[in-house]
Write a protein that binds this DNA or RNA. Structure first.
Lengths: 333, 333
DNA sequence: TCGCTTCACTGATACGTTTCAGTGAAACGC
DNA sequence: GCGTTTCACTGAAACGTATCAGTGAAGCGA
């Protein structure tokens, strides 16, 4: 009720006998005398004045917010990433505007443009469709840092790149070394683009390693992949191992296996990719990325770029292998 | 580079020979002739005009955004909730500004006020400290819908209430019926308030059921609770069952148990609370809430309230029991 | 003393919309 | 045919800040 109207900069100006401009300068620590500084500070405190972020955004074109556009938040690892980035930004007094493209390129475009209109100071994105044209325009009007694999053709301010080729090789070699020959590969659904580097690499590597693979797309989350996995595991010639291109997908395989009365790793080996915190509990052997390092790198890059301090840096993340229990040699049949 | 400046409403006005005001009205479908409507639509399309959300927010005081202030995003179930709410809002052409209080009441206050300054049209909150004073002021200046247990003393526009008393009773009765007498209770860390209904109820119920309980606070996430659980499980008189006040905490117990070579449920029974998707995979017996229903209810209430359509509604969620494998009768020792 | 620079501050305008108070014309009731 | 509504629209004033182009005074070197 009481609803006291907020104090404006004009009132602070009046209280101190200065002009609004001087108050504005003082509050942002620019070129004012020590005495004025003090007076303004005090008056602002007394009036409970705080600059209106919307008016500030309109006038200055900056908001202090960083947009975070996730490829698909159905993926648990991406959830962790989003939470981590939100937290890291907060520690730098920036705030994240988190949006979810839900795997849809059209939505990705809409949201990205919307974020720009919201005057975010920078954008962190895990592109669904890295080949889309609008990224170039977007990167011209604000700092963009891309996280992931196939990136934005050098239009970005910066990139945190996963060495997925290496990751895939590690995973497949591990599975091969455990004795598997017939392995299914479950990848997240992505827009059909002529070149999907990771998938292409999977096929090439499988060939090199003499693996008989079967690549399928399996949605983004646990539920979708469970369905696909059910189809896969009920076939007469079911694979002895499944390599999932995200831990979330692997969880779906666990679910499907459980429902079919199959056990991991005795009846089917499962190899993951990401290393979500839950994977430890499930004993999922998986490719590991340094989530914390990725978060820090992305935040550092976007903050620097939004301050005009840096240009097009590229940080490459190396994968590790978390060996747990879910991949064992195949049983004789 | 090219950076063509955005079209403004003035340019559309000029192109149509109307006043900016008329264009503004037309674009929002208010009181204009059919012909004008058409002309404006066409001109806007040709110029690629879209209203600037910031300017709009400054002038109208509305943004179309809904703030979502989570108690602690370290909790996986709250992550799911946030993702779900974000998605549901998007379906109503609203967008969520998701912030994480990280269990800190001071931060919660700061962020809530910040959200108001951002002119969100409404606020969905899982309060860390429901007793805090500022909620009253806040609810006076914008629609607030609270999700959870101990709520905001009627200051809110609406509430989605969990019947935690019932949930706790169900959980404890189930554990008792399985034959457990000595059970530990792990609750999330909350600010110390004189009355914590749920905890108080836990103690009362335990007494009624003749349970010997040991209540401990265990952080919010998997990592913290694992540490607490390790302490608990290495005691000579370790409890035969652990009731965790969130599935995330239960996961921590699994982790601790795994590291100690203890197995669930043979060596220790674990009862969860929330029913996160992963709990199915782990076979965690848990109290189940209708996440989807909660999401829909919260979004519906906040959207209605932000449109000035509803006042103080209260929706009560009933718990269910998901019986899985993690609670079995205690082994003789 | 003079000119030049630096400093601290002011006045005005810009940012791009919404919205309030009209305004003239047409429609309407009687 | 006259007063009253309604309609479609206009002009101008918000909204609350940042910032640009000055401005007067002080400081400085020669």
């Amino acid at each position: 009720m009481a609803q006291r109207k907020r104090a404006t900069i004009r009132e602070v100006a009046q209280a101190t006998g200065l002009s609004p401009a001087a108050v504005s300068y003082a509050l942002r620590g620019m070129q004012v005398s020590e005495e004025t500084m003090q007076r303004v500070r005090q008056a602002a405190a007394e009036l409970g004045y705080e600059a209106d972020p919307i008016a500030r955004a309109l006038a200055s074109g900056r908001t202090g917010m960083i947009g975070l556009l996730c490829g698909s938040l159905e993926d648990l690892w991406q959830q962790s990433l989003a939470v981590g980035i939100g937290r890291a930004l907060r520690d730098k007094d920036r705030y994240a505007l988190i949006l979810d493209a839900a795997g849809d390129p059209a939505r990705e475009r809409t949201l990205a443009l919307q974020l720009r209109d919201q005057r975010v100071d920078g954008l962190i994105v895990q592109p669904v469709d890295p080949a889309a044209r609008f990224w170039a325009d977007l990167a011209d009007s604000l700092p963009v840092v891309a996280i992931g694999d196939a990136l934005l053709h050098g239009h970005t301010a910066a990139e945190v790149v996963f060495d997925n080729r290496r990751g895939v090789t590690m995973a497949l070699e591990y599975v091969r070394d455990k004795g598997h020959r017939h392995v299914a590969v479950l990848t997240p659904t992505r827009p059909s683009t002529p070149d999907r580097p990771a998938d292409v690499h999977v096929i090439a590597e499988a060939e090199r390693l003499g693996l008989d693979i079967d690549v399928r797309t399996a949605g983004q989350g646990l539920a979708d992949s469970a369905e696909v996995a059910t189809g896969l595991l009920t076939r007469p010639d079911r694979p002895t191992a499944v390599f999932c291109f995200s831990d979330s997908i692997a969880y779906g395989v666990y679910k499907a296996a459980g429902e079919l009365g199959l056990s991991v790793p005795q009846d089917v080996a499962v190899m993951g990719y990401d290393d979500h915190p839950m994977s430890e509990l499930l004993g999922l052997t998986t490719v590991n990325w340094d989530l914390d390092g990725i978060v820090r790198a992305a935040v550092k890059l976007v903050v620097a770029a939004s301050d005009g301090k840096a240009h097009h840096r590229r940080i490459v993340q190396a994968p590790g292998l978390r060996e747990r229990l879910s991949v064992q040699p195949p049983a004789r049949r």
